[in-house]
Amino acid sequence: MISQNLDLLVWLTIFGAAAVTYSLRIGGLLLAGKLPKTGRFKRFMDALPGTILLSLIVPAALAAGPIGWLATLCTGLCSLKTGNVFLSMIVGIVIVAGGRLYGF
């Protein structure tokens, strides 16, 4: 009974997220003529992806300790210099793994 309920929550979460995402995709297209293309609303929407991702990172990066701070810094710099998301990701993970191997 409990596991059935858990399973229901899983599907509710997935399909809820899917419904929200699809509504935004189709909504943008259908409402295209009505959305402001300049001004505050546009600036709010433009800024959102960056500020959201940043809010995700900051508390977790702060909690990761000195080796995590170094890894975050290197990942950020690598991404900024090379624009290669995958490479930058690997740099961060390798630094943390290496740091742990040597007991930091």
Binding site: I57, A61, A71, T72, T75, G76, S79, V85, S88, G92
Partner: peptide, 10 residues
């Protein structure tokens, strides 16, 4: 953290 840090600069 690494994934999002790499992504955020795009």
């Amino acid at each position: 953290v690494a994934v999002f840090t790499a992504l955020v600069f795009s």
